[in-house]
């Protein structure tokens, strides 16, 4: 992968085409170096269920952080808040310089372009080839065809899927499908990569390979938030961790300075 491009520049790369939108008119606040900052974030769903309570966290640029917690702890809800699929009920939320808690709907695509997201259920389009699945994340940005082909091939190579681009996802193993989803998430060179249970449906050996792959991506400067309920992974590859339980942070290894600044006492 090429060097990490600061988010302001990533946003400016989007050309002024109606279909793609014009990112330059958006209010991006690139203050500070942390790609993710949450202050007192609460999320209560319409039916009254409280999914997140007073979540405050700050992740510095280049970090690899596990988001640990059992199923139903609020990991997926937290992710949805980060890419604005849900809005916080209370609190402030900054991602890659975007004030997500008050982001206008038309600005949401630009926030998402600054992120890489690996979904729990992968979300690969079955009727497309693996290459097409990866390439279309670049097509959305309106990149030149040549660049799309080059970067998509590079992305596939990076995750070890060279030579498999012409297969439909269904012909790949579960681990390979996971890699294809990762390739799609990193092909835009995001500043922050969100991975929701990326090892959930694969065996231990494949899971360890996936974690290694994330470590490699992280070593190139991409900040990673890696959600998992598997306590074994941090043991395999020790990194910073945040533990969520019933929607609250109950443990965090993030620096005391960052925690103190946010008023976090965990």
């Amino acid at each position: 992968m090429d060097e990490i491009v600061p988010v302001e520049e990533t946003a400016k790369k989007a050309p002024e085409i109606g279909f793609l939108g014009n990112a330059e008119s958006l209010e991006v606040n690139p203050s500070g170096s942390s790609p993710l900052e949450m202050v007192g974030v609460c999320k209560t769903f319409e039916e009254g269920r409280q999914a997140l309570t007073e979540v405050s966290v700050r992740i510095e640029k280049g970090k690899f952080v596990y988001l640990l917690g059992p199923n139903g702890a609020g990991k997926t809800t937290l992710f949805k808040l980060l890419y604005a699929a849900e809005r916080p009920t209370l609190g402030e939320l900054r991602v890659n310089g975007y004030e997500v808690h008050r982001l206008k709907r038309r600005q949401v695509p630009f926030l998402r372009r600054s992120l890489g997201i690996v979904f729990q259920d992968l979300k690969l389009i079955p009727r497309w080839t693996v290459f097409e699945n990866v390439a279309f994340a670049l097509q959305v940005l309106g990149r030149e065809k040549k660049e799309i082909v080059r970067k998509a091939s590079q992305g596939l190579q990076q995750v070890g899927l060279e030579g498999k681009g012409h297969f439909p996802p269904s012909q790949l193993s579960a681990g390979e499908q996971q890699r294809a989803a990762i390739a799609r998430a990193i092909v835009n060179e995001p500043a922050l990569l969100l991975a929701d249970e990326p090892t959930g449906n694969i065996d231990l050996r494949a899971a360890e390979e996936i974690v290694r792959l994330f470590e490699e991506i992280n070593s190139r400067g991409t900040t990673i938030l890696f959600a998992t309920h598997d306590e074994g992974l941090p043991a395999f590859l020790p990194k910073d961790r945040i533990v969520l339980e019933q929607g609250r942070i109950v443990e965090s290894t993030l620096t005391a300075a960052a925690a103190a600044k946010l008023g976090f006492a965990g």
Binding site: G18, F19, L20, G21, Y83, A85, R106, P109, F110, L111, R112, R113, L115, I117, F119, K123, L124, I125, F136, A137, V140, L141, R184, N188
Partner: peptide, 19 residues
């Protein structure tokens, strides 16, 4: 609808999805 959801997730604008 799943496909649309994926398009949205990678930052496609509404118009891009609808075109």
């Amino acid at each position: 609808r799943e496909e649309i959801e994926i398009l949205r997730a990678v930052g496609a604008t509404s118009l891009f999805i609808r075109a």
